[in-house]
Amino acid sequence: KVKIAGPGLGSGVRARVLQSFTVDSSKAGLAPLEVRVLGPRGLVEPVNVVDNGDGTHTVTYTPSQEGPYMVSVKYADEEIPRSPFKVKVL
């Protein structure tokens, strides 16, 4: 029921550039959304989540370095389908 889309989860994500993606939970009811961005060697990146007021949230983060990242998206305390997402930061 929760959908996710945006360039911040795709290929070609650049280090030190603001990345974003949208989480659409409009068909999933009200529940807490939790997003974690883990970088190389367990680095935890700050994440900004904005409630758009229409059942969607815009998530932004800036990867601080190149390497493999994991983006975990939980809704109602459960990983959404395909989460955690593997993101290769260049």
Rank of each mutant, 00 (worst) to 15 (best):
V49N: 04
G8C: 03
P84N: 02
R41F: 15
L30R: 14
Y75K: 03
D24C: 04
P63Q: 00
D51P: 12
P84H: 03
G67E: 01
R41E: 14
R14V: 14
T22N: 07
K88D: 15
Y61W: 11
E79Q: 10
T22K: 09
K3V: 12
A15W: 06
F21M: 04
V73W: 01
L33N: 01
A28N: 04
G29E: 13
V73Q: 01
P7C: 08
S20K: 12
V37I: 14
D77R: 10
S64F: 07
N48R: 12
P84D: 02
P63I: 02
P40D: 05
P7Q: 08
R41W: 09
P63T: 01
R36K: 15
L30K: 14
G39R: 02
V89T: 06
D24F: 05
T60H: 10
Q19P: 00
F85Q: 05
E34L: 10
I4W: 04
L30V: 13
G67A: 03
V49H: 07
V59W: 02
V13C: 08
R41H: 13
L33Y: 00
V73D: 01
V71M: 05
S20G: 05
S11N: 15
P68L: 15
L90P: 12
T56S: 09
Y75A: 04
V2S: 03
E79A: 06
D51F: 11
G29F: 07
T58V: 12
T62A: 04
L33H: 04
E79K: 06
V87C: 04
L30Q: 12
K86W: 09
H57D: 03
V2P: 00
V50T: 14
K86D: 10
V44F: 11
G55M: 13
P84W: 01
D77C: 08
E78F: 05
S72M: 06
K88E: 15
V47W: 04
R82C: 15
G39K: 02
G6N: 05
S26R: 11
E79I: 05
V50E: 11
K86M: 14
V47M: 05
R16F: 07
A31S: 10
D51H: 12
T60N: 13
P32A: 13
L90Q: 11
V49M: 14
F85E: 02
S25P: 04
K27A: 14
V49Q: 14
D77S: 10
V35P: 03
A76Y: 05
L38R: 13
G55C: 09
P46Y: 07
Q19C: 04
P81C: 06
D24Q: 04
L9I: 15
Y61L: 00
Y69F: 06
V13R: 02
R14D: 04
S72T: 09
E34T: 15
V89C: 11
G42P: 02
G53K: 12
P7M: 15
E34I: 13
Y69E: 01
G67V: 02
Q65S: 10
T56P: 01
E45W: 05
G55Q: 11
V35H: 03
S83Y: 00
G42M: 07
I80K: 01
A31M: 10
P40K: 03
F21T: 01
G12A: 14
E34S: 13
T62E: 05
K27E: 11
L18R: 09
L18Q: 14
S64I: 09
I4K: 01
Q65G: 06
P32I: 07
V44G: 11
E45H: 08
N52A: 09
K88I: 10
V13M: 05
V50W: 07
P32V: 09
L9D: 03
P68V: 15
Y61T: 00
V50A: 10
Q65Y: 09
V37E: 01
V2C: 05
G10L: 09
A31H: 06
D77I: 00
R82F: 11
V23L: 05
L90W: 11
L18N: 07
V59P: 03
E45D: 08
R36S: 13
N52H: 12
I4Q: 02
Y61P: 00
G29M: 08
V49F: 06
K27R: 12
V71W: 01
E79T: 05
L43V: 15
K88T: 15
P46S: 10
H57I: 05
E66I: 09
G10E: 13
M70G: 06
E34F: 10
G42Q: 14
K27T: 10
F21L: 04
I4A: 11
T62C: 07
G29A: 10
F85T: 05
D77V: 02
R82K: 15
V37Q: 01
S26D: 03
S11D: 14
V17K: 10
G6L: 04
T62S: 05
G29Q: 13
L43G: 11
V35F: 03
V87M: 10
V73S: 00
P7N: 08
V35D: 01
T60V: 06
A15T: 08
E79D: 10
V89Y: 03
K27Q: 11
R82V: 08
V89E: 03
Q65A: 08
G6V: 03
S26A: 07
V44D: 15
G29W: 05
R36W: 06
V47H: 08
L90I: 12
S26P: 04
D24G: 01
L38Q: 15
L38H: 14
S26H: 08
M70F: 13
N52I: 09
P32S: 11
L33S: 03
G53P: 09
L18E: 15
S72R: 11
P32M: 07
G53Y: 12
N52D: 06
Q65K: 13
P40Q: 04
Y61H: 03
D51W: 11
R82L: 11
V35N: 01
T60R: 10
N52W: 05
S64K: 11
L30D: 15
V73F: 00
S72A: 05
D54I: 05
R36P: 00
K3W: 06
S20D: 07
P81S: 07
K88R: 15
M70E: 15
Q19H: 04
L9N: 01
V89A: 15
G6F: 06
G53H: 13
P81Q: 07
M70Q: 15
V89H: 04
I80T: 04
K27P: 05
G6Y: 08
P40H: 04
P46H: 06
V13G: 03
N48I: 11
N52K: 13
G6P: 06
L30G: 13
Y69H: 12
L9Y: 03
K74I: 07
R36E: 13
V2A: 01
P84V: 04
R41I: 11
S72F: 05
Q19W: 02
P81W: 03
G8K: 03
L9P: 03
T62W: 07
P46N: 14
V2N: 03
E66M: 08
D77T: 07
E45Y: 06
E45N: 06
E66N: 08
S11Y: 09
P46D: 10
D51I: 07
E66C: 12
G29K: 13
S83M: 03
V71Q: 00
V44E: 15
L9R: 01
G67P: 00
G53A: 11
G55K: 10
T22L: 10
A28Y: 02
A76T: 02
P68S: 15
Q65N: 10
K88F: 11
T62K: 08
K86S: 15
K88L: 12
L38Y: 14
V44C: 11
V50P: 00
S64A: 10
G29D: 09
V2F: 04
G42A: 10
L30E: 15
S11F: 11
K88M: 14
Q19R: 01
L43M: 14
Y69A: 02
D54K: 11
V2M: 02
L90F: 07
G10F: 13
E79N: 12
N52Y: 06
V89R: 02
